[in-house]
Computed example of a mutant assay.
Amino acid sequence: MDTFTLDALERVRTSAPLIHNITNLVVMNSTANILLAVGASPVMAHSRAEVEEMIAMAGALVLNIGTLQQDWVDTMILAGRAANARGIPVILDPVGAGATRFRTRAVHAIMAGCAISVLRGNASEVLAVGAADIRTKGVDSSLALSEEIVAAAKDMALSRNCIVAVSGERDCITDGKRVFRVGNGQPLMTRVTGIGCGLSAVAAAFCAVAPDAFLEAVTAAFAFYGRCADLAIGVSDRPGSFYIAFLDWLYSAGKNEITQGLKISMEG
């Protein structure tokens, strides 16, 4: 996976894929900056009047329900169908799913209305998609990433025919048959708004340049992203300056920094 990660990152940096984000109002700026630092080209377009036209230029689509309105759900489905028609990956970040009936129903409507390539969130968000008794506290995970949850993620990946990527102390990325675990990352990442949403966007960028290997692409994105956080913590252990250092490492991390510290294992 080290070679795959480096190759995918190089393709992102050289081809600058356009990543179309229909994302939440809180993280638009940080998501754009994260994508730019990695080498991708971000666009934030959520008007029904232009999403289909924008998709025609994009390499991947990110749907993020963080600040949700019903008309945005309709637009997300429209954009998702346009992405499906063009064969580009659709990454869904179900922010806060399980916290309210509206959010949970919205995720179900999006997944029923278009084909999702990657479902990326924390444990309670992801499992809320398929389990009515899961409750989410805000947008933070209320569940540890146990082996039972990994097994549930595998089942969901098979039943939904998509990659399921669950963030945690050791991230889980699965297609239902194979499971990659990633140990890179820092607890301080949870103290900066938008870093999780940024991961969904970076996963989209990696998928855009690896259209036949979404499982490996998402795993590589998680590992690279977490590795940059590991490097940033060496610069600062305070949220504001940590975030700046994190952006800098997303921009500048090269072969030596990446391969010396990736923590990827495969199960199953």
Rank of each mutant, 00 (worst) to 15 (best):
R135S: 11
A32D: 15
D71E: 12
K137Y: 06
K177S: 15
F246H: 02
Q260I: 03
R170P: 02
T104N: 14
S117Q: 13
R181E: 03
I55E: 07
G234S: 00
A165S: 13
V139N: 01
Q260H: 10
H20E: 13
S15G: 05
T67Q: 01
D237Q: 02
G98M: 07
T136D: 04
A203M: 09
T31E: 14
S47E: 04
S241E: 11
M54Y: 12
V126K: 04
L61D: 11
C172D: 14
G98D: 04
E267N: 06
N256A: 12
F214N: 12
R135K: 15
A99G: 06
S142E: 01
A123T: 09
A99E: 14
H20W: 13
S252H: 07
C197M: 05
G138C: 04
E267A: 07
T193D: 02
L145Q: 01
E257R: 06
G196I: 00
T23W: 13
R120G: 00
R105S: 13
A112W: 10
G183T: 01
F102G: 02
P42F: 03
E125D: 14
V12C: 10
L215F: 08
A144C: 02
I134V: 15
F4C: 06
V95Q: 00
L35H: 09
L18V: 15
N24F: 02
V12I: 15
S15E: 14
N161I: 04
D74S: 09
F214L: 14
T104L: 08
I233A: 10
A123E: 01
N122P: 11
T104V: 07
